[in-house]
Design a protein around this nucleic acid. Structure first.
Length: 421
RNA sequence: GGAGGGGUGGCAGAGCGGUUUAAUGCGCUGGUUUUGAAAACCAGUGUCACCUCACGGUGACCGCAGGUUCGAAUCCUGUCCCCUCCGCCA
């Protein structure tokens, strides 16, 4: 959520930010009008209530029964207050609806542009030359008997995958290695949060109300399945004032559930785009002044993880039209997929400034005192799973069809190579 | 699913119709003392909104939503969540 005061005091900058994202600015004028009405109503209600408080306080202090006149007058005041409150509620609710529909504003250094063709590659990298045996991950997995797409379809239909034997173990090894590395080397607290969340939690991240169509839900229970652990981790401090010092660094390994309507017909083969996948996520609550540096640190962590897995990567700075609703700035890390001869998004790292904290009503106490403030939140994949798995297979593929594993995984998988030699 | 108990300020925890503008403790901030630190002592310190250049003022908030009343943290109804016990399922 944007700061209402900022919309009022710095209207043109807010409009410019929305335009940069290709967003409709019409709600701004409605918001400004509703805010004026809202203030009027608050003032009128407050003064009516002040009157009522004065009178009843006097009666109480004098320990007497109220007079007939007083009772009449107070009843009328009560009715007036009720009427004002009712209008105030409806104005506040309209205002909130509009506010929840506004995306975050892109930071100044976010590239202009409305679609992915305007994303900037940071430090161009040449992909390695193609090898004659390069082949997509589904063929590799099929040959080795470690990816079983047919069974997945039997169980759940399209856009699911199933891993078997050493494939399942490799998957588990990657996840375990990622978590351990984040905890042991990069100062993250490991968490294992709920995967089903309340509606308010999804409003807090920005997924609701706007993107309900992308999410799975249990309507009877009022619970939704998370599309990313960002949702659960952001929810930890919902409606509360963080007790203690920032920064807070959480990581989690969770399943993620997405309907993927928007991708209908695209990436249908293999496990690249599926309705259920797993991800190891990094999440931070930081002081506002520290968020840009924190984002750089998180990018460096993800790049380092890719390096240790032996991946060829490139870094993308997303343009204003391509960043997520809640994001103020996003970098994607893409890994070279030799089997498909394309760059594959393996991590997305964003700062959401105070946008999520505001929606979530998460606050902290700055060190010097002086009340509460909204922290900044940042999230990023410490590598998304099926794609990391894909990259390990395609990069490690040998001419004989076996896959040589990155050294960091040897102990966990129990071998250096999958397949015959 | 059944029975009971409970949700109060950063935390703990009183209050159960009108001097409560929510006691007290912890924590936090500042000060005194000290070579320095700790301890002790003194003072301050809930959140949010609106008005004001400011000093300051006003209002709301005791899980949430209604209701009763001149007046509700306090009484009534509904609802959500947490805890204990029982049952059922893993």
């Amino acid at each position: 959520m944007l700061d209402l005061r900022r919309i009022v005091n710095d209207t043109e900058a807010v409009r410019a930010g929305l335009v940069k994202r290709g967003e409709d600015v019409a709600p701004i004028d409605e918001i400004l009008a509703l805010d004026i009405r809202r203030r009027e109503l608050i003032q009128q209600t407050d003064s009516a209530r002040h009157f009522r408080n004065e009178v009843s306080r006097t009666i109480g202090a004098e320990k007497r029964r109220p007079t007939e006149d007083e009772i009449q007058q107070m009843r009328a005041t009560g009715d007036r207050i009720s009427a004002l409150e009712e209008e105030a509620r409806s104005v506040a609710s309209e205002l909130r609806t509009l506010m929840l529909g506004l995306p975050n504003l892109p930071l100044g250094d976010v590239p202009e542009g409305l679609d992915e063709s305007f994303n900037e590659v940071v430090g161009e990298v040449e992909p390695p030359p193609a090898r004659e045996w390069d082949t997509p991950h589904w063929d590799i997995g099929d040959n080795l008997g470690i990816i079983d797409m047919e069974s997945a379809a039997n169980i759940s239909g399209s856009r699911f995958y199933m891993l078997r034997g050493q494939g399942a173990r490799l998957h588990r090894a990657i996840v375990g290695w990622l978590l351990d590395t984040l905890v042991d080397e990069f100062g993250y607290e490991e968490t294992n949060p709920p995967f089903l969340v309340r509606e308010e939690t999804l409003i807090g991240t920005g997924n609701l109300p706007k993107f309900a169509d992308d999410l799975y839900r249990d309507e009877d229970a009022g619970l939704w399945m998370i599309p990313t652990s960002e949702v659960s981790l952001n929810g930890i401090h919902q409606d509360s004032i963080i007790d203690g010092e920032l920064p807070l660094r959480y990581c989690a390994h969770t399943p993620c559930f997405r309907k993927e309507h928007a991708a209908a017909g695209r990436d249908v083969r293999g496990m690249k785009r599926v309705k259920q996948f797993e991800k190891v996520e990094m999440f931070r609550f930081v002081e506002p002044d520290d968020s840009e540096e924190a984002l750089e640190e998180m990018i460096e962590i993800s790049l380092e993880l890719c390096r240790r897995l032996g991946f060829t990567t490139r870094l993308l700075k997303l343009c204003a039209g391509d960043i997520a609703f809640q994001s103020a700035k996003t970098y994607d890390i893409e890994v070279w997929s030799p089997g498909a001869q394309e760059w594959l998004e393996i991590s997305s790292l964003s700062t959401c400034t105070d946008f999520q904290a505001r929606r979530n009503n998460t606050r902290y106490r700055p060190k010097g005192g002086g009340g509460t403030r909204f922290p900044h939140t940042l999230n990023g994949s410490a590598l998304g799973m099926p794609r990391t798995f894909i990259a390990v297979l395609e990069n490690g593929l040998q001419a004989d069809g076996s896959v040589v594993l990155p050294e960091v995984l040897w102990d966990r998988v129990g071998c250096e190579r999958i397949g015959t030699r």
